[in-house]
């Protein structure tokens, strides 16, 4: 009993040592990126959270319907949705205002969106000299 446990424990310790030595002997597994030097080749993980962006398709259209779920989901009041009316007097998105200065990149607005109209971008080096330079209008044109 004790002997078999000893054998099993030793084996599992050796397994752990094998895992770490494989990390040591394979330089390709190093995840550190030497940032200022490799700015051009910087690779981001898929779920990296930069600022909120609104993807537009090739015709320049977005899928936002101005339902304001994201505005309600935001704990900081970072998002303001200004609506307008189109020619059929239907309520559509006028301006999607996103204030990066108060955003905590919490991802709640993305989860709230039922149309996948917004997502987390991979932006970095976002610093600005004035706070209002961090206010963005995400949509390029009004919704239809």
């Amino acid at each position: 009993m004790t002997l078999s446990r000893l054998f099993h424990d030793t084996l599992s310790m050796l397994k752990g040592m094998k895992v770490t030595i494989l990390y040591l002997t394979r330089p390709s597994r190093v995840v550190t990126q030497q940032y200022p030097e490799n700015r051009e080749t910087l690779k981001f993980p898929e779920r990296f959270r930069g600022q909120v962006v609104m993807p537009h398709d090739e015709k320049g259209e977005h899928t936002c319907t101005a339902c304001t779920l994201c505005e309600k989901a935001c704990p900081n009041g970072t998002i303001s949705i200004l609506t307008t009316k189109n020619i059929a007097s239907k309520r559509v998105l006028g301006e999607f205002i996103y204030r990066f200065s108060t955003c905590t990149l919490c991802n709640l607005c993305i989860e709230a969106c039922p149309f996948d109209a917004i997502r987390m971008g991979h932006g970095f080096e976002m610093a600005a000299y004035k706070r209002d330079e961090l206010d963005y209008v995400l949509n390029k044109k009004e919704g239809r």
Partner: peptide, 13 residues
Amino acid sequence: KVCARFQARLGPT
């Protein structure tokens, strides 16, 4: 250095 490489980092460079 060795610690960093065991943890898939680079260590002091």
